[in-house]
């Protein structure tokens, strides 16, 4: 095996590992955002939920000794922020984009404030399965350390797809997101449906945050999130509001994020920053090529296009 092959292989392994490790929080925030948007509302504040969830999960895990209790509380903190978002946005004339950004500031502010004393101590972390023991390459073994939350994500993805497609509740969420008129005619409580969807979406984003602090990178500090929560919005568009695509897109975004450091480790030190733009350029290109003035993005919930129609 010559040097070039080896470095190519190590880059591929690093990207694979990154797709799983970096991609897991993406899976949760994007599924959460997908659910919220399906009900006809955009929550741009999931970054706040993510950071809040990371802090809450770590703090509870440290105080109680149980990382899973931490994950639960992280989700609940996200649901609370989602409740606030939904309540504010159902008031007349309140702009959901602006409320989302405000909640991002409040969520990160509260998390930084309350998390100050948890930066030092070491909290119990979430466990993982080793699927790579058959291999004798240490890097591959490390890449195949699969966290339980990733498996939860694998289960959750088809479950949510099934929920939208076949369940009565999923149909209600889609109806509310597609056309408020149709929802009203069917007697659904639009605000209640959106509130529950936003809270459930916020819960998932909070769980995604707890992965950051309880597994990878695996400790709480203020620079933990690199904007994964904000990116969720782009991811959902990229995935065309389809949970299964959200899953794949999360792995893709995770892998893309790991590509830079992987290239750096084999000696490519400049140039890869442009790769960081690739997912966004691609998402933008998809938006441009699939929309026109007469035709909107396929797959987009109708009420996101013409609110209140």
């Amino acid at each position: 095996m010559n040097g070039d092959d080896f470095s190519l292989l190590s880059v591929i392994i690093a990207v694979l590992g990154g797709a799983i490790r970096v991609g897991t929080p993406f899976i949760f925030v994007s599924l959460g955002e997908c659910l919220t948007e399906k009900s006809g509302r955009i929550n741009l504040g999931l970054e706040g939920n993510l950071v809040m969830g990371a802090m809450a999960g770590y703090a509870i895990s440290y105080l109680s000794g149980s990382p899973w209790l931490g994950v639960l509380v992280a989700g609940l903190s996200g649901a609370a922020l989602g409740l606030l978002h939904a309540y504010l946005c159902q008031q007349p004339r309140v702009n959901d984009i602006a409320v989302g950004i405000a909640l991002m500031i409040l969520g990160t502010g509260l998390a930084f404030y309350m998390g100050k004393s948890f930066i030092q101590p070491q909290a119990p972390r979430l466990g993982s399965f080793s699927l790579g023991s058959w291999s004798d390459i240490p890097a591959l073994r490390a890449a195949l350390e699969i966290n339980v939350l990733f498996i939860v994500g694998i289960i959750l993805t088809p479950a949510m797809a099934w929920f939208f497609k076949y369940s009565r509740w999923g149909l209600i969420v889609r109806t509310v997101g597609e056309s408020t008129d149709a929802a009203l005619a069917s007697g659904f409580n639009i605000n209640a449906v959106r509130m529950l969807s936003t809270m459930a979406g916020g819960f998932l984003a909070g769980v995604g945050g707890s992965f950051l602090s309880l597994y990878y990178p695996g400790s709480w500090n203020e620079g933990l999130s690199s904007g994964q929560g904000l990116m969720a919005v782009a991811l959902v568009i990229f995935a065309r509001w389809n949970p299964v695509n959200c899953f794949y897109a999360s792995l893709l975004f995770g892998g893309a994020a790991a590509l830079g450091p992987a290239l750096q480790s084999v000696g490519v030190t400049s140039g890869y920053y442009l790769f960081n733009a690739a997912p966004y350029v691609l998402t933008l290109a998809i938006m441009v090529s699939t929309s026109s003035n007469n035709r909107v993005l396929t797959g987009i919930p109708g009420d996101l296009v013409n609110p209140g129609r």
Binding site: A102, L103, G109
Partner: peptide, 9 residues
């Protein structure tokens, strides 16, 4: 940051 967030919201 908390104060700003509360005021904005």
């Amino acid at each position: 940051l908390v104060m700003q967030g509360i005021i904005f919201i």
